[in-house]
Amino acid sequence: MKPVIDLKLCKACNICVYICPKKCYSKGADLSEIGYFAAVVSAAEKCYNHNRDGKMICELCVLSCPDQAISWHPETEEEKRK
């Protein structure tokens, strides 16, 4: 499972950048559709839940995101092999 940021919901508060213990997120530079510099998932392979087949371990970003923008999505076969 990997984290995905919904660009229609993210308000660029950067709480995910602060709270992630593995530093998976970083501040964004591109203006999103609703007018914020939304955060980006820069290192999804560092995430605790990467390659764990749906087993949830940390989830700090999902629970902390005030705009409900972060959600888990299963990886593609290509990403799993990494």
Partner: peptide, 10 residues
């Protein structure tokens, strides 16, 4: 942006 109420909602 950054308000804690959303966290409580989660």
């Amino acid at each position: 942006p950054g308000c804690g109420i959303g966290t409580v909602m989660n």
